[in-house]
Nucleic acid binder design. Sequence first.
DNA 1: CTGAAAGCGCTTACAG
DNA 2: CTGAAAGCGCTTACAG
Lengths: 341, 341
Amino acid sequence: MRPTVHDVAGEAGVSLATVDRVLNRRSGVRAETVARVNAAIMKLGYVRDISAANLAKQRVYNLLFIVPEGSNSFMLGLEKELGQAKLHALLDRTHLDIRKVKTFDADALATALENIDVAQVSGVALVATESQRVRQALTRLREAGIPVVTLVSDVSDPYRDHYVGIDNIAAGRTAASLIGRFSGRRFGKVALVAGSMLVKDHAERRAAFEQAIGEEFPGLECLPVLEGRDDAAVTRALLAELLDRERDIVGLYSIGAGNRGVIDVLTSKAEYREITVVAHELTEHSKQALRDGVFDAVINQDAGHEVRSAIRLLKARIDDTPVIANQEAIRIEIYVRDNLP
Amino acid sequence: MRPTVHDVAGEAGVSLATVDRVLNRRSGVRAETVARVNAAIMKLGYVRDISAANLAKQRVYNLLFIVPEGSNSFMLGLEKELGQAKLHALLDRTHLDIRKVKTFDADALATALENIDVAQVSGVALVATESQRVRQALTRLREAGIPVVTLVSDVSDPYRDHYVGIDNIAAGRTAASLIGRFSGRRFGKVALVAGSMLVKDHAERRAAFEQAIGEEFPGLECLPVLEGRDDAAVTRALLAELLDRERDIVGLYSIGAGNRGVIDVLTSKAEYREITVVAHELTEHSKQALRDGVFDAVINQDAGHEVRSAIRLLKARIDDTPVIANQEAIRIEIYVRDNLP
DNA sequence: CTGAAAGCGCTTACAG
DNA sequence: CTGAAAGCGCTTACAG
């Protein structure tokens, strides 16, 4: 049998209350007593039972998730996962509060962060848009001892405890590698379609992609990026015009969430089927495009994994328990038609 | 506040013991009383707190993992993950017992299964080698109410509760797709290197690979498979001889765990660098081969994820709690140099 | 600075 | 067929 607080108390010759004080590093215990208790803990190999502790404490975790208002399929998928996680979390005394703010609006995000009642919330996860006000709001939270993780989109390091998402530089390089190899040493141009260059993830992916193409596939030339604002109509118009104008496009990298517009254009003319296409985010649309051979590969981050990871990381910070680093690493997943989940 | 057994007891006008009996579907309660309690549960929206229940029950989970004796890097990786999971599991009253049996030896596996004391073990995970004796041993366990999951390598459906591993048919098709696309519509032959065609995973990957190549890349022709027995020296000798003999090999699919021998041969002559190579399982060797450009892609299953998933699935069966299907799906991961974790 | 007692939400003998 | 009481491993007022 694993030792309990009773065993430790007996071994150290003190009461349960004192063991508890030492265990929780509460003040008001003589140094000598602390030493005796710690010696007993070491001797018995005592390890605290956290679920019993949480039961006694009636601990509930109030986790706040701040996400952009349902715009594109990926964010909708993230919301769906949050909804599912919410039900499951309840079984673990964990309440998920999901708040939506205007997309890409740093001030709206900052306001949401500033309005957090630090007495009510035990941890915060946010899809970040960085700004000075956001950084200040995050600083207030962290000074109040509230753990903060960023989800999918990051802020600079000292303003959060952890980033839950993929390395967008590596993702851009991966896309370059796939397009370069799939297009089979051909010469030609590569079209880039993004949401907006003001979004950090998109900008990072694009820069890394262009650099990798330049370094490794000298036969390919990147065209100026189209900014479709994650809007199907805008994307469609811009891309149709580009494909019509440029005659030797062999590859296309869809950086953001404009997949629907991209698919529309690519399926509009038979000759476009020769273009090697790599896109981001696995959705019903992109899956279908893979099956139809319109897309050649999709780079994905698993929204369900990200949500669960954010919850685990926040709770681990709150309880001061260890995490399994490997389990929390978000993979840059590559899907082709054949390994679809 | 979430309702507790006390609230249910009060609402139904019965004692805690009776609520507990209904909750746990124990017999010896009048149908009318059962109905009253269930009505109260519905009315209050009561949901049992499982960690409190486990505390009261002093429930410990004794999970037995049966794995092949440390042979190849993948299995060594699996063991490492099991070791790490073992430490973490202890915090959750879960004991992992890891037992090794002779590799690919169905009788050794069956003996291990037959020796299980069903009173001591609460769940079993095994890397399966199928045989009649193994199926019988599994039937005994399941009839004793012990949940069984297969890990990495499966048995037929009715003999286990769940399979934790990748779809090897899809994995073989994925390999074909990658080699076909990476080799750029060239014509030529593809070498296949496996451990043994007696191993079901290898046989499935190979068959699916050959079929997909035949269907989709008519310019490529699969050579007879080399069986390297997952041994570096054997693999090296066979492959060196093959590459020396056949002059127009453009692709190589390393199906099993013989990566070290494959890498040795491929790096032995400059001309071999042109060969498009897809291998299985991410290890230090295969990662280095990707970085060096010796391998073009590696197909992987995440051993850590598999171990954690097996634990979650077994505990969910034991406690009769739901699982998140998505979280338990093992992905066919594709790695190129740029998305290495 | 320290301890005795009650309680967290469940389950388990035991008694009736 | 049903209930009162004690206990699982912790924590928390309260008293001293």
